[in-house]
Computed example of a mutant assay.
Amino acid sequence: MRKSLFALAALAAMAGPAQAQSNVTLYGVIDASIQYVNRVASPPPGTALVTSGVPVAPVGHRWDMPRAGGLSSSRWGLRGTEDIGGGWQALFNLESGFDWDTGNLTTAPLFNRTSIVGLSSQYGKLTLGRQVTSMTDGLINFAPLRFAATYEPGIWWLGLNYRQSNMAKYVGQFGPLQAAAHYSFGTTTSLQAAGTGQPLGTGETPGSLKDNNAWGASLAYSSNGFGAGIAYDEWHPASAATPGNTGKERKVGVGASYTTGPLKVMGGYRYRNSEFSNGATLIRDDYWFAGVNYQATAALGLQLGYFYSNIKSFQPNPTAPSRNLANPQQVSLVVDYNLSKRTDVYIATSWVHNGSLINDSQFTAYLFNYPQAPGQKNMIGATMGVRHIF
């Protein structure tokens, strides 16, 4: 009997530290909303990947349930860490997006948002796999609507390639300063990237190391209520049919914020120049934004954002004539009320002039389903919903 008790005690002693050294967490967000949009048209004929043509009639209002949700994209994931000694940890993260209204995957593959493994220590974190760019890490905290899924032009700001496959990334935190850098050996074709109008291959290309590769870096500072960030991102999309002929998209962004009590103000700028492989300009634009966040009570928060795009040149294909499009400007407001730490309800509304909501257009292949017919100058959207975090 004593031997049995001793054996059980020894097993418990060994099992205790093992359990304490590692953990795995299941997490997710479900954001469901009902939306009204006026002066919206039908997308051009064809699939969601259409990159030419213009929206078609009828033009009118629409009631729907936006698949992206109102404030957050619905998603679920697994993440975990394991202590491996000497202050080092092994880590992983798998995250998949889904359409809350149908249960369908947002896009293939299964873990389309994040699929990484890596190591971390006091010197920083190194991760390998599909993940967001270092530009996203450096600037995301300056988003006026906290990167809201429905009425913030976040994808326009950070790029349709703000998630990339086959990436190695380093992030280090040194007091109030965060430094990040990444390199993708070849980011693969996805629905999010197809709207750029660039010919895209399947990722890494033997003999053509530049095809579809990407890289970037960022610095972000936060201390005593003040924050600032700067970032650079470069991407070389290429066609699988003609390896070695790459386009080039370059983005530079800056942002700043100041927080005092319940009030936070922020603003920023992003430069973009996207070129086809023949050097012709796909799009050249400047993007400006400013916003105010105010936590009126412990439960009630308000976010107001203004977004302006100066589209200097747009060319849908390498041989088409260049066009100077109208410059979209948008104002968005979110009223968010926390029912608990994990559940909130909200109302969001947005008005845009000279374009579609969140700059949805031929450039984005009408991915967000806000096509505005020619001749229409303004568009209004409003949505209300509930979000639960688990």
Rank of each mutant, 00 (worst) to 15 (best):
S218A: 15
Q164T: 14
S218C: 08
G253F: 03
F314P: 05
P43Q: 11
Q295D: 13
S350L: 01
D64K: 11
R387H: 00
Y36F: 11
W156F: 15
D211L: 05
W88H: 13
M14V: 13
T349I: 04
G381S: 07
V37T: 14
G138Q: 07
T196M: 08
S73Y: 04
T205D: 00
P55T: 05
A382R: 04
A179P: 01
G87L: 15
G175V: 09
V50Y: 04
D83N: 10
N324E: 10
V40F: 01
V171D: 11
G229E: 07
A241P: 08
E234K: 13
S313L: 15
Y232K: 01
A18C: 08
S120D: 05
M266H: 01
G118R: 10
Q178I: 09
R130Y: 07
Q329H: 15
Q315G: 12
A12F: 10
S350K: 04
L304S: 02
S239N: 06
V252P: 10
V40Y: 02
A217N: 07
V29H: 01
W76P: 04
A41I: 05
G77M: 12
Q21H: 13
H182N: 14
R62E: 13
N310H: 15
A220I: 08
L94S: 09
Y294R: 07
V252L: 15
W215E: 01
L94W: 03
D101L: 09
F226M: 12
A148L: 00
R75W: 01
K377T: 14
Q303D: 06
S121P: 00
F226I: 11
F6C: 09
G201N: 09
A68H: 02
P328N: 01
L11W: 09
A240I: 00
H388E: 03
V345G: 12
A7L: 15
K341T: 06
L119Q: 04
A256T: 04
G87Y: 12
T106W: 10
S115W: 02
A9W: 04
W351Q: 10
M167D: 03
L177G: 03
L160Q: 12
P45M: 08
G53Y: 00
L26C: 02
W215V: 03
A10I: 14
Y287T: 11
V117P: 00
L158D: 14
A57I: 05
I116Q: 02
V254P: 03
T319D: 06
K169T: 05
T107C: 05
A20H: 06
R146L: 14
G381Q: 00
F174I: 10
G175W: 08
A90N: 03
V334G: 03
A238Y: 00
W157K: 12
Q315N: 15
R323D: 14
N354P: 06
A143E: 11
K251I: 02
Q329D: 15
P55Y: 02
K341W: 02
G124C: 04
S121G: 11
T297F: 01
G46I: 11
D344L: 13
K377I: 06
S332A: 14
G355Q: 03
S74T: 01
N224C: 12
I389V: 15
L304T: 08
F142I: 11
G60T: 06
R67Y: 01
R75Q: 12
D286F: 06
N161E: 09
A41E: 04
L209N: 13
K251L: 05
